[in-house]
Design a protein around this nucleic acid. Sequence first.
DNA 1: TAGAGCATGTAATATGTTACATGATTCC
DNA 2: GGAATCATGTAACATATTACATGCTCTA
Lengths: 164, 164
Amino acid sequence: MEKKLILLGLLQSREMHCYRIIEFLDGSEALPVTLKKANVYRLLADMEKDGWLTHFSEQEGNRPQRKVYTVTEAGRKAYKDLLRQSLSSYPRPEFPGICGLDFTSSLPQEEVVSLLEKKLGLMEAKYRELDTIPSEIRNSHLCIEYMHRFYKHEIEWLKEVIST
Amino acid sequence: MEKKLILLGLLQSREMHCYRIIEFLDGSEALPVTLKKANVYRLLADMEKDGWLTHFSEQEGNRPQRKVYTVTEAGRKAYKDLLRQSLSSYPRPEFPGICGLDFTSSLPQEEVVSLLEKKLGLMEAKYRELDTIPSEIRNSHLCIEYMHRFYKHEIEWLKEVIST
DNA sequence: TAGAGCATGTAATATGTTACATGATTCC
DNA sequence: GGAATCATGTAACATATTACATGCTCTA
């Protein structure tokens, strides 16, 4: 469970409440998996139920109370286990984006080309976004570096496909 | 919804009952998304509820009855819509497999290397599997060709990472 | 002083997976 | 003739997303 791994990793660097975590992650387009709000809430609750986290409540002014989570000893153990598993296993990657390519014969050629050009534009936007991250950061964050390269190949490939 | 697209594509080439579809897909490791049994059953039922499919029942000997699905006119329309959307959009790809790489500093270096070598082995197995598919098939199925290349880059990259 | 939007979260729903059920058939 | 396994599917559970709720604070 990669998402739990990420959350444990973050919370070990500093304790946070859920909203803060989401703020943190939602900004970063550079994350290799999606982590949406409601899901983060549930994951934290689950991990607390499993004894990996504890929380204390905090209140700022009249704002709603919020739960600040901390990693427990069991949580640090679980983190290492998850990490070992993540590093040694190879979950089937998924490419929903390319499923359509096997059915292009159902549409007129020119339409396919114009649709794919739209897709290409979206890819390039993503790439540019990662490309603006300074390379010293990319180099210290393998995930970002990975995605940077991925999009590059992706774009090359799609261009090749379009020109056929 | 890529999965529905794939199912509609298949069923348009020939009508089938669910078990047959699963047989068909489960063999092919070359599919770009996962499609598990129970999920296929649900997706077919959903699409029938939406009027994209109809079925008639069939029975062979004393075997359990089975539903043979056919694509309706509305289904063919939906198929084209899904296809257009699939070709023109670019859903965020996910790489759960690499999340761990940003946390390698939590484990001793040698352990990380040996864990990653295990991962590498799994990648290579996947690659070889796709590599045995004859290249004329790969060339006519862009999805397969795509994945073939993907794994190749993936392997190169991980080797590079390990050697650092 | 009303409406926009932040801060914080829950509920309802959709999607996907694992485990179980059940009668034939085949295999030893 | 009992054990595996094929053929067909359902039910229970796990995971993830979208929509909604609610009380502040700021701005026009």
